[in-house]
Computed example of a mutant assay.
Amino acid sequence: MRAVVSFSDRRGRMTEGQQHAWHRWWPEYGRDLDELPDALDADGWFGRRAPLLVEIGSGMGESTAAMAAAAPEINYLAVEVYQPGLAQLLMRIHEQGLTNLRLVRGDAVRLLRERITPGSLHGLRVFFPDPWPKRKHHKRRIVQPDFAALAASRLQPGGTLHLATDWQHYADHMRKVCDAEPALLGGPVDRPAWRPLTKFEQRAREEGRTVTDLMYNALAPTGCARETPPPPSPRTAP
């Protein structure tokens, strides 16, 4: 059976500038999912050893570039399927001189399941994923029990899963799913000051939709000696 995915694979037309960026910088900063080795060697790709953070759904890359620039000590990996958005992010990488940002084009769930080593992520971010508001499409939402378990398994103990949405029904669903995952501990937090306010989020506010941030810590596997991590601070970037 064909797997249910949480995204629409929109190709889209690139501008002349985006096309130039794609041909010039994609070989250096980007990879298609199927080009990656079975176990991603992030340290080798980034050319240094540093905590690895994955963002699912970078869109046009404005906030992604800003967050990567604000945390140069982090190896920041953005996963997206929309080629013009990735090309736009390549332009931002070049314009801002970012050295800690790499891009993957493909299914983020497959990336986590097939390429990311268990316990290797410092953080995982899913900001404003497609809410699939129609009831018949709810099965396409990325945050499901299987995803929560997969995310928890890829995070190192104490690593953070950070979710944000402007759809209250989806926020309630996210919280229910993550609260039920025994390897995650956390809940709602105030909007972190370090998360850029995008035009998309500003429009949601103007339309009266509440933005919800949820942050969870990954617990150590059962049987490992550990202390339960404290609730994540809303004022500090994970």
Rank of each mutant, 00 (worst) to 15 (best):
2 R>M: 09
3 A>C: 09
4 V>A: 08
12 G>C: 01
13 R>T: 13
14 M>K: 09
20 H>R: 14
21 A>E: 11
24 R>E: 15
25 W>S: 13
33 L>C: 10
34 D>V: 11
40 L>F: 15
41 D>H: 08
52 L>I: 03
60 M>N: 09
69 A>T: 01
70 A>Y: 02
73 E>C: 04
75 N>A: 15
77 L>F: 08
80 E>V: 10
80 E>H: 06
82 Y>Q: 07
84 P>T: 06
84 P>F: 13
85 G>Y: 08
85 G>E: 09
86 L>W: 04
87 A>D: 10
87 A>H: 07
92 R>K: 15
93 I>L: 01
103 L>Y: 05
107 D>I: 01
110 R>V: 09
111 L>P: 03
117 T>K: 13
118 P>F: 05
126 V>P: 01
132 W>A: 04
143 V>Q: 06
145 P>Q: 10
147 F>H: 04
152 A>C: 06
157 P>F: 08
160 T>C: 15
161 L>S: 00
170 Y>A: 04
172 D>Y: 03
176 K>E: 15
177 V>M: 05
187 G>Q: 07
187 G>Y: 07
188 P>N: 02
195 R>Q: 12
197 L>G: 14
201 E>T: 08
208 G>S: 11
209 R>I: 08
212 T>C: 04
213 D>Y: 02
215 M>W: 08
218 A>E: 05
223 G>A: 09
226 R>E: 12
229 P>K: 06
237 A>H: 15
